[in-house]
């Protein structure tokens, strides 16, 4: 098993932390993992992306030409990464703010209106967890128990009371793509 994932969007959308939770969940499932951020001035408004690789064998390059799965959260990232999804791969995108939707027909394209769902959950910060839920429903590369453990690992203890809300968001994301 090897899953090569790119998550890309604006800084502030939780791109890097979503990748981090995914990577930690991989660790909890005894997978090899790499989390490679395009680091830099990724404050709110700038572009941010992270490559996460989960594999049951050692990982060579943390830098990739193409991806099994892409989670795309803005137009710039869609323009950059749509053609880098491997044929037969999966592209999840948030349609809000997308003027030119994906056109590929050789990959699975799944719009997920995560912002609307986050507003329903009355917490816009659940946005990235809704997308993670959608991703894991389509590509179950780690189990849900591992994700909860990963949340505990990545969230500072003072935010642990928010874990049930995050789990709810992950479940909501999964429902959206069912």
């Amino acid at each position: 098993m090897k899953e090569e994932i790119i998550i890309a969007g604006f800084g502030g959308q939780g791109v890097l932390s979503m990748g981090k939770i995914l990577a930690y969940a991989g660790l909890m499932n005894d997978l090899e993992v790499t989390w490679m951020p395009a680091y830099g001035p990724e404050q709110r408004g700038g572009t941010a992306n992270v490559t996460v690789i989960l594999s049951d064998s050692p990982i060579s390059s943390p830098v990739l030409d193409s991806y099994d799965t892409a989670v795309i959260l803005n137009q710039q990232s869609l323009d950059k990464f749509e053609n880098k999804v491997k044929p037969g791969g999966t592209l999840i995108y948030d349609p809000s703010g997308i003027h030119h939707p994906p056109t590929r027909t050789d990959i699975k394209v799944v719009p997920v209106d995560a912002m609307e769902a986050a507003i329903e959950l009355k917490n816009s910060k659940t946005y990235n967890m809704i997308l993670l839920g959608a991703l894991l429903a389509l590509r179950p590369v780690v189990d849900s128990e591992a994700v909860v453990k990963a949340l505990k690992k990545t969230l500072p203890e003072r935010h642990h009371h928010l874990i049930p809300l995050n789990v709810q968001a992950i479940e909501r994301g999964a429902q959206l793509v069912k």
């Binding site: 993992v33 790499t34 951020p37």
Partner: peptide, 10 residues
């Protein structure tokens, strides 16, 4: 280099 400094692994 910045890659191995910034990336996370086990």
């Amino acid at each position: 280099d910045g890659i191995v400094g910034q990336m996370m692994e086990k």
